[in-house]
Amino acid sequence: MITEPQAIAGRTLRAEHIHPALWRASQLARPHGRHIDTGFNDLSAQLPGRGWPLGCLVEILAPQPGAGEMQLLRPALIQSAKQRIALIQPPYTPQIAAWANWGGQASQLLWIRPKHATDSLWATEQILRSDTFGAALLWQSTVRSQALRRLHLAAQQSSTLFIVVRPLTAARQASPAPLRLIAQPNPGGLSISILKRRGGVLEGLITLPLYTNNRSADSAHATLDRRASSARKPGHRVPELAR
């Protein structure tokens, strides 16, 4: 049996007392730097610092670009009011009305769509170095590890919320990002698994309920007119749309 150091010293000695950057494998890292609340209690509880770290590369891996990451980031982005948000090479056109309905100001958004991938990496680095944006979101399908490391270094000098959205296949590649999440949509919202964090391995999924209104609860609209069902004949197929 291994004798624990605190037993020898005769007093409680914790890893973080030795150095702030140390933590035990069984606990979450002590936060240093600023964090911004994710808006989801279940998720915040599992992150070091109880929120998205600012000035740090955060990777979100999604099976399909545009599936869920904005919903996941929505509470954090809305919090950074008045600061601009850069959307760099998003997969589709961002809809202003959706952002306005979430409670954000339309003038906060800036859509950057460079013609080449290298230009988008350059633009991201410039944005991080200038440190005048509240958040920078980068969508990249293929990005080299050196480029990510460079972006992470640039992010560390800023206090920008910096998210890179990558496809699910990138999960097998190594990355310098201290926080990597996999976001997969499920019928009720999103399920998050943490691929990498400063802390112990998280088994299982975090389920975030995003959609409260189901078909049954959604009574704002009248349902489609339906004819009275005719008498069934044996062997007839039930229309799947009509429930």
Partner: peptide, 20 residues
């Protein structure tokens, strides 16, 4: 911030940086 936007516009072209 304005300097940054202007540098981005200069390098990427004005049609690549869009505001709502």
């Amino acid at each position: 911030h304005l300097r940054l936007l202007e540098r981005l516009t200069a390098r990427l072209g004005s049609d690549c940086i869009l505001q709502p």
